[in-house]
Design a binder for these strands. Structure first.
Lengths: 147, 147
DNA sequence: CCAATGTCAGCATAACTGACATCA
DNA sequence: CTGATGTCAGTTGTGCTGACATTG
């Protein structure tokens, strides 16, 4: 109720949620099938020329099996397909289908517009500074009291 | 592989994860039982004098039932207890037990130290600016192309 | 043989919705 | 009666681990 000072992780999470909900609502409004967060994450880490499930898992920081599950759901929705890797017969590359590319580009455009709106509200230099701080390497967190 | 430009929601989520993992690792290192993210969230929104489950749910932006689940898990761990509200017999207030207060304060101190370390690395004014931007009202996201 | 990959199966957590009793 | 609250039950999404076959 009272305005308690919120710590940084809370603020970061709230703002992330601000974006997530806006994207989900806008995609729904646009008549697109809802794409879950895990699936958006796959899109975000996919190479244009295709990526193996194991590599996706590494990039997303999850188990191979979890990435596999998300990829398979997207394949079932017709947004991804798995093609054999010409360089290695045991590998299969997950790639965007044309429909997947369309949905992905639409979501990316939406995020870009939200960022533009924010820049107009908060000031372009403010938003640039925000992005710069978040993009800068933060180093490893210190665990113990006396390292 | 190549440095692709990451958008704001990704950056926000990554930095939130930076904090979450650091706190979880440090609490584990300190010999504390692991407290999940949902449970940290309950702690963060709890009033010192106790809060009803319904009010917690509103603050956390979740369904009453989901908050109920998280609260009950914490009660089972001995970190919360449910006491009858003197002002209304149908209400029950979730409150920190002494052990819950100890764990919560330890986690808060950990986060504060992580923020101090960050301030030393990135510059105090930079970190203040970051917090200020995140804390400023962002307004409602624009959904349609032409509002 | 070894290591990486893809995949199946089972489990835990955390959110959701629906339903319902209680009580100010 | 109405509305808020607490709670039970079921479902979904997303992660995990274990296990195993395949293949370079």
């Amino acid at each position: 109720m009272t305005d308690r000072p919120r710590n940084l992780p809370q603020l970061l999470g709230d703002r992330r949620t601000w974006f997530d909900e806006a994207v989900a609502a806008a995609m729904l409004e646009a008549g697109e099938r809802p794409v879950t967060f895990a699936q958006q994450n796959v899109f975000a880490h996919l190479d244009p020329d295709g990526t193996t499930v194991a590599e996706l898992a590494r990039r997303m920081g999850m188990a191979r099996q979890s990435a596999h599950q998300a990829v398979h759901a997207l394949v079932g929705m017709g947004l991804l397909d798995l093609v054999p890797d010409p360089s290695s017969s045991r590998r299969r590359l997950a790639r965007l289908t044309p429909e997947g590319r369309r949905v992905h580009e639409r979501a990316q455009a939406l995020i870009a517009r939200l960022e533009e709106d924010l820049a107009a509200r908060l000031g372009p230099s403010t938003l640039d500074a925000l992005r710069a701080v978040l993009d800068r390497p933060w180093g490893e967190p210190r665990l113990r009291a006396e390292p």
